[in-house]
């Protein structure tokens, strides 16, 4: 039992980290509550599903999947940039405006996928086949790719934010928007870069997690809710907070699954968040002034 909780909690945590990191980043930098966040998971997953048959001539499934995933990620990131410039940027002064436009956008993508494709549930074949037995627990090998991929990406993004020039600008903007503008940082570009990173991260979540899982047009909302809750839990705009929050939530869900009942694994995390909000509204590692 302990082993299972350890492993599945890790898997859940890795997934949540990928989902939440970008969401938190975008809020921290631009104060943008991006309700279209989950939609980027949706479009990446569907792009993979749609493009995959075109590369049927490649016999090696891993290679075929890799090429498809790369193309899908690029398209998703481009879409994120375009929607930022066209829709979010003009409205970024108004909080409610941003909420509405990103909500409408998420709704649009859901309907788009439904219209272009069909409303049925589909399945993408995992690119890592078979099962793995670790600590006496047998689980799909695809999940190993998810955990490893997530750890690498989260490390890379953290390094990027801390070390690179763009990363430093991102941090500067998130600490003080106006001061950053004063010292000559193009805040608009930085915001766009952040939105793109966030789309890339959740896109990777789709690449790693959608295969072996079902995809359907309305799934974006669920991932949005997960990202939103974990971010609030960890503290809006705090990267370490989001990562810590992801794993705590991941384990909380898994423990509920195993020790209480799967029926409650939806409610328990929400209750945890609610309690968190009441006890410590700024989240685990959030900045006090943000709330």
């Amino acid at each position: 039992m302990i082993e299972e909780i350890l492993i599945y909690g890790m898997v859940q945590g890795s997934l949540l980290a990928l989902l939440a990191l970008g969401f938190s980043l975008v809020y921290g930098v631009g104060g943008i509550l991006n309700l279209a966040h989950g939609a980027f998971y949706l479009i990446t997953a569907y792009l993979i599903y749609w493009i995959l048959p075109y590369f049927i001539f490649i016999d090696n499934y891993l290679l075929r999947f890799g090429i498809t995933a790369a193309i899908s990620l690029v398209i998703a990131v481009v879409i994120s940039a375009v929607t930022y410039l066209g829709l979010m940027e003009p409205l970024k002064e108004s909080h409610i405006g941003i909420v509405l436009i990103t909500f409408a956008l998420a709704f649009f993508f859901e309907q788009f996928v439904k219209f272009v494709g069909d409303p049925k549930t589909h399945f993408i074949i995992p690119f890592v086949p078979g099962t793995v037995t670790f600590l006496g627990v047998t689980f799909p090998a695809q999940l190993v790719a998810l955990v490893v991929g997530s750890l690498i990406l989260v490390t890379l993004v953290t390094l990027f934010i801390n070390r690179s020039t763009i990363g430093k600008s991102i941090r500067a903007v998130s600490q003080d928007f106006e001061a950053a503008q004063l010292v000559g940082i193009n805040t608009n570009m930085i915001l766009m870069a952040t939105v793109m990173i966030s789309a890339l991260l959740i896109g990777f979540a789709a690449v790693l997690y959608a295969p072996g899982n079902f995809i359907r047009p309305n799934m974006g909302w669920r991932y949005l809710l997960l990202a939103f809750s974990v971010t609030i839990f960890g503290g809006m705009g705090s990267i370490p907070g989001s990562i810590a929050g992801s794993f705590i939530m991941g384990y909380a869900t898994t423990i509920t699954d195993f020790l209480i009942s799967p029926t409650f694994s939806v409610i328990i995390p929400i209750v945890v968040i609610l309690v968190m909000l009441l006890v410590r509204p700024q989240g685990l590692l959030g900045k006090k002034e943000l709330y």
């Binding site: 299972e4 599945y8 689980f139 695809q142 997690y209 699954d257 799967p262 029926t263 694994s265």
Partner: peptide, 13 residues
């Protein structure tokens, strides 16, 4: 009894 939003990892468990 699983929640209707359950996913692949959940089913593995």
């Amino acid at each position: 009894a699983y929640p209707i939003t359950a996913e692949a990892t959940d089913f593995a468990t």
